[in-house]
Design a protein around this nucleic acid. Structure first.
Lengths: 226, 226
DNA sequence: TTTCTATAAATTGTCAACAATTTACTGCCG
DNA sequence: CGGCAGTAAATTGTTGACAATTTATAGAAA
């Protein structure tokens, strides 16, 4: 028995992050302290700390006296996220490709099967989460925990971005055998190819976004001559 | 009159960060809530929030019931910091070199003069802070605020690393005209050269570190056969 | 009906008291 | 003198009440 373990702020953070990753928490969603308190059975202090940490990661936005809402990255921020991912993730991947063990490859292949399984069962939420986790898994192989943390933040933000600007909902991204091809390249020890595939993979995802004016007041200002 | 503005957690964070950057706050220093409360004239709540944010940035370490101490990056972490800096900072610098305006160059040159002035006045603390800020300034020119934040964290951590493992205290690092040469390369629009100088600059700093066993229990375990 | 205002409700921000834990100290025994 | 309880002090963790602010509601006037 897990000793009636009570949740701490890290647990709350991870829970919220995971929901964001699965796109079950849409950008703009209001997060009230009270609701989270009752959901997790923790005090306001804990929720408050979780909010502070999530703000730091750009996952939620905290406004004075107004509470927390799930972040809505602007198109400009979205561009920066992809730019950062390409730089970071390629470097990490190329480094990983030089140090992987056969066990690591096996672990990656196992993950690919999980992804396929999620699709087979049409468990979209799980699949979305798994595709995100794949990139984090790759990052971990680089052995650089610091860069891994950075990338993790970026992956979560990517999920928000796709939720906001993704064309046909969740399904179309991360399609094809890109992930499998990356693993193959790593297994072959071809760091450069792995990096190239990754970058085109990200470019493809970014290319599927559509930033047309949907809502918000910014658009109103743009429409009129202000 | 600035309306008797009271400090918030961001102010406290920045103050602590700046002290770390100037190496006036040594790794391992205990930070009690009470002392910071009286120093900044804020409540414990604010200090506590600041601690949480600083923990996220690896600037302090927060232990349950034991309070906060300034972080002491391990040699392994130090290696990761430099690795991350080379990846991130080179990418940002090369991007910056393509977009800089003459105003930006002027601003950089101005900064170089400040650095020289600090040396002339033997104001070491100010000089250390300026050399750190130089790298942040470069990063800002990339136009990617996200990567800029990442790098900022890394710069602060670098300051801790140098304080811990730097050979002759503070002075020898970031010497020579490396900064000036980087600015020259940028001004000439030579992104590749700028990147190369930067990497060798960082490599040089890293090379001056000495990770010999100084204290800590890890060394004891290594000494005996455990 | 719409709009504006005043009031009420709900939500967030702050603070102080109390509980839990760690750290420092004193005195005792060897 | 050095080590070891046991107690006192100090520091951190948590909770709850209250203040400040925002949001929702109801009613009156146009």
């Amino acid at each position: 028995m897990p000793k009636d373990a009570t949740f701490n702020e890290e647990d709350v953070c991870n829970a919220i992050r995971d929901r964001v990753l699965e796109q079950r928490l849409a950008p703009g969603t209001k997060l009230t302290e009270e609701s989270l308190c009752s959901i997790f059975g923790v005090g306001r202090t804990t929720v408050r700390r979780a909010f502070l940490l999530l703000t730091r990661d750009n996952i939620i936005q905290l406004q004075k006296n107004k509470g927390a809402v799930v972040a809505s990255p602007s198109p400009e921020e979205a561009k920066q996220v992809f730019e950062a991912r390409m730089v970071l993730e390629r470097a990490m991947l190329e480094k990983a490709a030089q140090n992987v063990s056969t066990d690591d490859i096996a672990r990656l292949r196992e993950h690919l099967e999980e992804e396929a399984d999620a699709i087979a069962q049409t468990d979209i939420a799980r699949w979305i989460r798994l595709t995100g986790k794949f990139h984090i898994l790759l990052a971990e192989l680089s052995g650089n925990a610091l860069m891994c943390n950075f990338l993790e933040q970026l992956v979560f933000q990517t999920s928000l971005i796709i939720a906001l600007y993704g064309r046909s909902g969740a399904a179309p991204n991360c399609k094809g055998g890109d992930h499998a091809r990356i693993v193959d390249a790593i297994a072959a020890g071809d760091a450069t190819t792995a990096g190239t595939i990754l970058v085109s993979h990200l470019t493809s995802i970014e290319g599927q976004l559509v930033f047309e004016a949907r809502n918000s007041e910014q658009d109103l200002h743009a429409i009129f001559g202000t």
